[in-house]
């Protein structure tokens, strides 16, 4: 074998230094790791490592601060947009973003989400929607699909008992305060590239003072869904994307 591959000019990929060299606690196949990497890359490419402030949620991503090397605050469950509101208002020259799951953003934190978006806070909200509570062991989320089984709807989500899946991204797109609302995924190379562009756009927009940017990433939770990573991606495409179709809601 030759050593061509080790020559610097042949380097085609290197991990961004904004992503720390520590093992992630996420399950293999989980979307969080990919989205973390994209955020770290965007921070690196925009040169904002020393001006970005992230807000970590309660949920699987509570330890986001261990992986992306910037200043972080870890919020109470659902309150990340309130923290981000204050931080951005007090320091408009910083890039402020929240990273939240579906339980955090669309159940317990619905009021904070809606009102931060409606005030048009100049923040970026990254919303991981995997339709389940991963951290607490697979309970029903506000975004759990009809018929989908979780530990608190073991026979499948029944709207008569559990209500309907909440399409909160569609809802925030209706608000005057939002500037950019999009729904992405990270299950294929093409999707990853598109999601990265969306995250970068959201971060850039947040510095232009024209309203809230909201990026939903439809994600997998293979542990919670009790499927292999490959099966999870397939299940997501066949089921999640029907209820939560990908694409831009708003970009102005």
């Amino acid at each position: 074998m030759n050593n061509e591959i080790a020559k610097p000019e042949n380097l085609v990929y290197t991990k961004t230094p904004v992503l720390n060299d520590v093992p992630m606690h996420y399950c293999p196949g989980c979307s969080h790791g990919v989205v973390h990497k994209l955020i770290a890359e965007v921070i690196d490419e925009m040169g904002i490592q020393e001006t970005a402030i992230g807000i970590a949620p309660v949920g699987c991503a509570v330890f986001a601060y261990k992986y992306i090397e910037i200043d972080w605050q870890q919020a109470a469950h659902g309150r990340a947009p309130a923290l981000a509101t204050a931080i951005k208002r007090l320091m408009p020259n910083k890039t402020v973003f929240t990273y939240q799951g579906d339980g955090d953003l669309a159940a317990i934190g619905t009021a904070e989400t809606i009102h931060a978006c409606n005030r048009g806070e100049n923040i970026a909200i990254i919303f991981i929607n995997n339709g389940i509570y991963g951290m607490t062991g697979g309970q029903m989320a506000p975004t759990t699909l009809e018929g989908m089984k979780t530990s608190t709807c073991p026979y499948g989500r029944n709207p008569e008992i559990n209500g309907y899946p909440l399409n909160i991204t569609k809802l925030v797109a209706e608000l005057e305060g939002t500037r950019y609302v999009t729904r992405q995924a990270v299950h294929t190379v093409a999707a990853v590239r598109k999601a990265k562009k969306a995250i970068r756009k959201a971060f850039e927009y947040s510095m232009e003072g024209k309203g809230t940017s909201f990026v939903e990433i439809v994600s997998t939770c293979n542990s919670g869904w009790k499927l292999s990573p490959v099966q999870s991606n397939k299940w997501m495409e066949e089921n999640m994307f029907k209820a939560y179709p990908l694409g831009d809601f708003k970009d102005r």
């Binding site: 402030i53 919020a75 509101t85 204050a86 931080i87 320091m91 009021a111 904070e112």
Partner: peptide, 21 residues
């Protein structure tokens, strides 16, 4: 900065965010 929040829950968490800075 003076901001009327949507609730006391949001207010105290805005305080958390600002105090953290």
């Amino acid at each position: 900065v003076v901001l009327q929040a949507e609730s006391e829950v949001a207010s105290i968490n805005m305080v958390y965010g600002g105090a953290g800075c």
